[in-house]
Amino acid sequence: MKQAIQCISAVAQLTFLDGLRKQTLLGLIVLALLLECSGIFFMDFFGHDIGRASSDFLLSVIWLAGLVFLFFHAVQTIALSEERKSIYMILSRPISRSQYVLGTFIGLASLLLILQASLGVVAWFSLLWIKTQLDVQYFAVFNHGYFVLSLFGLMLMQCCVLAIIMLFCGMLRGSFLVLMMSIAYYFICSSIPVVLEAVKQQISSVQEGDNFYYLLQGLALIFPDFSRLDFKDAILEMNPSLVAVDTVSAFVLSALYLVIVLTCACYLYSRRDL
């Protein structure tokens, strides 16, 4: 067990150092900071609800930076390591395929955490500054706890996408194919809750017990509803309507989904020829 943890941490450290020095992170942080600063300067263009608009904008920048990191750096790191045969260098050590998957995931998630944390700190200070510049009527409340909760929610969402990228890398050969599938996955996850709601409202014949309804519910299990981890609205509300049980269950279910996807990725990697 100790040796397994040592191997996983060695791979994680390798992935982390390689990513940090690739300056991908630095470039993303600089880009995101520029976008966040632009949000501060252009807040005057918002006619009303400046607090909500600013908060949404800043958290969206963090979300976008995370997605760019996942789709370009993470996909490259995992898929290209196989194309370039650098995976042989790692697996020529006494490291199992599962340990490689877990170590790579942890290394990339650590880089994502640094990205989120640094942008989150800047976003927090930006919101505080914006709040001081405005009258109370435009920006009454700033819930710091829910802001941190929103960042956790974003992080967990992106870790789920990272796990899916690892799964696709285990199934497919070629970084471009993995990239396309990952982007498609993300768009389907974003769209299914909307489709489900629209179907419920517009087609009166769809009821519980209908096969089509079950199909949509089944798809919703495979393509999770990321909006359940979106707590942006609660940051600026006086009395947020979040229910503790719903919030905790959203985190627990997402963590469970993450574990299941990673387990499948480990299984696929252990079965395939390199």
Binding site: L17, D18, R21, R84, K85, S86, Y88, M89
Partner: peptide
Amino acid sequence: GYLPEVTAFPQNL
């Protein structure tokens, strides 16, 4: 001890 035909490392180590 394995020496592969193509040396490929994470280049930023």
